[in-house]
């Protein structure tokens, strides 16, 4: 978990300075998809605040959006068909699009998703597998019990 927090903070800085894509949100909603825990909501809230601060936006806006998105994903995740790729990918693309549309709509600028939405869509599968492999191989789960 500490590693995840450090990586997410680093991704926040990279998102703001180098790569203008929603890397943090992508990681958070994919993790929420794979492991629907309440820690995701905490992560979404604090990292939303951090990103609002780094982007010089009003504090609370991104944290509100991230918490809502994560909670939506965790609720949607309960459906039986939710883990199918043909359902998962469009739902994540929808969340990412809403995240792009909302600030543009609020600021009154022309809504333009292209080409950021394409780049973020292409990152879904690789990030999904990175998180899955990382959580399965390197994170100790408290549920694992050794039987004697």
């Amino acid at each position: 978990m500490k590693t995840l927090i450090v990586v997410l903070i680093l991704l926040s800085f990279i998102q703001v300075t180098l790569v203008p894509l929603n890397l943090v949100l992508l990681v958070l909603i994919l993790r929420a998809y794979l492991y629907p825990e309440k820690i995701n909501l905490y992560l979404g809230f604090f990292l939303g605040l951090l990103i609002s601060f780094l982007e010089s936006q009003a504090l609370g806006v991104y944290s509100l959006a991230y918490v809502v998105f994560i909670q939506s994903i965790q609720m949607f995740r309960k459906a039986q068909f939710a883990m199918h790729y043909f359902v998962m990918i469009p739902s994540i693309v929808l969340i990412l699009s809403l995240n792009l549309i909302f600030p543009q709509a609020v600021s009154g600028s022309t809504i333009n998703l292209w080409p950021d939405i394409l780049k973020e869509t292409l990152l879904i599968i690789p990030v999904f597998f990175i998180i899955k492999v990382w959580e399965e191989r390197f994170v100790v789960k408290p549920e694992v019990k050794i039987r004697f």
Binding site: P36, K38, L41, Y42, G44, F45, G48, L49, A58, L59, G60, V61, S63, L64, V67, V68, Q71, Q74, M75, K78
Partner: peptide
């Protein structure tokens, strides 16, 4: 099984976000 998981935490975080938003604007 709850329909809305972690509802209490979710609402708290929403309210905190709105509070921080207004404090920042002020």
């Amino acid at each position: 099984m709850r329909i809305i998981p972690h509802l209490k935490l979710f609402l708290i975080l929403i309210l905190l976000s709105i509070l921080i938003f207004f404090l920042d604007n002020a």
